[in-house]
Nucleic acid binder design. Structure first.
Lengths: 107, 107
DNA sequence: CAAACTACCTTGCATAGCAATGTAGTGAAC
DNA sequence: GTTCACTACATTGCTATGCAAGGTAGTTTG
């Protein structure tokens, strides 16, 4: 899979999944992996960053299957950023499709 | 516009436009700019790289409106790479849409 | 206690886009 | 006749993000 394509989009994916319900990091990796190749080394720093920026809050939950899980919950600010990012993504894809399908738009 | 989204995709756009007919750098910037914000500082290094990798050939054409134009022509190898990249792009977009729309796929 | 799984985390590297800047040619304005 | 705007090429240093590779620690199975 083309690594470059993912730049900025994984952030959007994480937002989208968390909007549907709180998750912990390892769970996010597994969910995203069903559709896009992703590694833990990508997700954890991303979650830290977005938490630091105030878009997520975290809480720990004990697990009977391993170490405690750090759950991430989207904040109201995060929700605003997410909706904006989602719009940008769709309009970007539309722009790319215009270029690809017509090579050019006018004339 | 989100800069990160463009990573790797501008390459695809350049391929797509050149598949439709030879262009010079400045022209490519203008064509892509109709749909996606782009700067010259991005396009010229990209064209150099893809030419060096054997995906484009170039030829100069005098212009009455300024300095000579360097036209880029896609090579057979370039065409193969382009078709592959295009497939990857569409499958990537599909994957992202799956994540965004369902948050998850299974269950 | 070793292997396999869950679950967290960090470091250094590669990549691509961009702003800023520079060079030259043409043509119009003043 | 020189200043401005446009065409058209190009380079440098910066930034951001994803990844491989590595590590820590808890649980369960043998």
């Amino acid at each position: 899979m083309n690594i470059q394509f993912k730049k900025g989009v994984l952030e959007l994916c994480v937002f989208a999944i968390l909007e549907d319900g709180d998750c912990y990091g390892y769970e996010l990796v597994n969910k995203i992996s069903k559709n896009i190749t992703i590694s833990e080394g990508t997700i954890y720093p991303l979650l830290r960053r977005l938490t630091k920026e105030g878009y997520f809050k975290t809480y720990l939950v004990e697990s009977s299957e391993g170490p405690p899980r750090k759950y991430y919950k989207i904040t109201p600010e995060g929700l605003v950023v997410y909706k904006n990012l989602k719009k940008q993504w769709f309009s970007f894809v539309e722009g790319v499709n215009n270029v690809i399908e017509r090579g050019d738009d006018s004339e």
